[in-house]
Simulated assay, not measured.
Amino acid sequence: MLKAVETLLARAQEAGAVRRDIAVPELNALLIGAACARHDIRHVRSMTERTGSPVRHP
């Protein structure tokens, strides 16, 4: 699984969607932080509506 994440990260970096100085440990921390933040506020509907999804869709 780690190899798959490394491959996806490299592709995203080549496409310019992710900074080159981000590695798997930083990506993991960002994903965990986003998931925890979303989990903490999911019970507050108004805040969830204001913050929306942590992932931007094109």
Rank of each mutant, 00 (worst) to 15 (best):
M1Q: 11
L2M: 11
L2Y: 12
L2H: 15
K3Q: 10
K3E: 11
K3S: 11
K3F: 04
A4N: 14
A4R: 10
A4T: 13
A4Q: 11
V5C: 08
T7Y: 06
T7E: 13
T7W: 01
L9C: 09
L9K: 04
L9E: 03
L9P: 00
A10I: 01
A10K: 10
A10H: 08
R11Y: 03
R11S: 12
A12F: 01
A12L: 11
Q13K: 08
Q13A: 05
Q13V: 03
E14V: 04
E14G: 09
E14F: 02
G16I: 05
G16K: 05
G16S: 09
A17E: 14
A17L: 13
A17G: 05
V18S: 01
V18F: 01
V18N: 04
V18R: 00
V18Q: 01
R19Y: 08
R19T: 08
R19V: 02
R20W: 03
D21Q: 12
D21A: 11
D21L: 06
D21V: 06
D21W: 08
A23F: 08
A23K: 14
A23D: 15
A23M: 13
V24A: 15
V24H: 03
V24F: 03
V24K: 13
P25L: 09
P25D: 15
P25G: 14
P25W: 08
P25A: 12
E26F: 04
L27V: 06
A29Q: 15
A29C: 14
A29F: 10
A29W: 05
L30Y: 10
L30N: 05
L31H: 08
L31P: 01
L31M: 12
L31D: 02
I32D: 11
G33H: 08
G33M: 02
G33A: 15
G33D: 14
A34C: 12
A35V: 02
C36P: 00
C36N: 02
C36I: 01
R38N: 08
R38K: 06
R38Y: 05
R38A: 12
R38S: 10
H39C: 00
H39V: 00
D40A: 09
D40R: 06
D40F: 01
D40T: 02
I41M: 07
I41P: 00
R42N: 05
H43Q: 11
V44R: 08
R45G: 14
R45T: 15
R45N: 14
R45C: 07
S46Q: 09
S46N: 07
S46L: 04
M47E: 12
M47W: 02
M47L: 08
M47I: 06
E49I: 02
E49R: 03
R50N: 03
R50T: 07
T51S: 08
T51G: 04
G52P: 03
S53H: 07
S53M: 06
P54Q: 12
P54S: 14
V55G: 10
V55T: 15
R56F: 06
R56I: 03
H57W: 04
H57Y: 07
P58D: 13
